[in-house]
């Protein structure tokens, strides 16, 4: 049983059940602080009222880190990280966190036009999850996950499902469908095109 709570800086010390997962990134402190300062209400967590830690606090089962960016019609919120502890997976917790973000950013003071996120093109499981939540592919970012060895992509012709990202978007009502493309998978762009 989950309650959605604001994320506090000290919570970073009790995230091991989530962040020891090999695919979950542990960012430098400065990065977390930047989010806490610039987008305080878009960094939140789910806590489990049935699982109490020795310090008396309900265990954190997942968290959402997001921000707002862009201008004019491109004003939107962006999901930087959404992750859930193994013990609390497959119970729609990530969906719950995404829905909470949608609720928060659709209202005052954010009023965004859409929410976007990037996902590896070969991560079918995640893509399906986001599609269920109303996201659709807007464009393919070629070489978004390139390593230093791979270098920056020189052309949009070479695509790799393991290195490219889909820019997926969920439009709010005020967006009037601008962020939805039925043929989004065919649209390609460079990583620098997704900087706001």
């Amino acid at each position: 049983m989950t309650t959605i709570q604001p994320f506090e800086a000290t919570d970073l010390l009790t995230l091991n059940n989530i962040n020891l997962d090999i695919l979950t990134e542990n960012f430098p402190l400065e990065f977390y602080f930047e989010y806490l300062i610039l987008w305080p209400d878009l960094f939140f967590e789910s806590r489990e009222l049935t699982k109490i830690r020795p310090d008396g606090q309900p265990e954190i089962s997942g968290y959402m880190m997001a921000k707002t960016e862009g201008k004019g019609p491109l004003w939107h919120s962006h999901i930087t990280a959404v992750t859930v502890a193994p013990e609390f997976r497959r119970i729609s917790l990530a969906s719950g966190l995404c829905t909470a973000l949608q609720t928060i950013t659709d209202g005052e003071p954010h009023n965004v036009n859409f929410i976007d996120l990037f996902v590896k093109c070969n991560n079918d499981l995640a893509i399906r999850l986001y599609e269920k939540l109303g996201y659709s592919v807007f464009r393919r970012v070629v070489g978004y996950y390139n390593s230093l060895e791979d270098g920056y992509p020189k052309t949009l012709n070479n695509i790799h499902s393991n290195k490219d990202a889909f820019d997926m978007r969920r439009a709010m009502t005020r967006d009037e469908g601008h962020s939805i493309r039925s043929d989004g998978r065919k649209h390609r762009c460079f990583p620098h095109d997704v900087k706001f």
Binding site: P6, E8, A9, T10, L29, F33, L36, I37, D41
Partner: peptide
Amino acid sequence: SAASLPQFIRIAFERSCFAKVVGMIDLYDK
């Protein structure tokens, strides 16, 4: 990184981003 936290906390004050300040100070202390 922790050594730079007071600088971030100052920025939080400057930007009037108050909600997380007490938690950030607590983390710095810890």
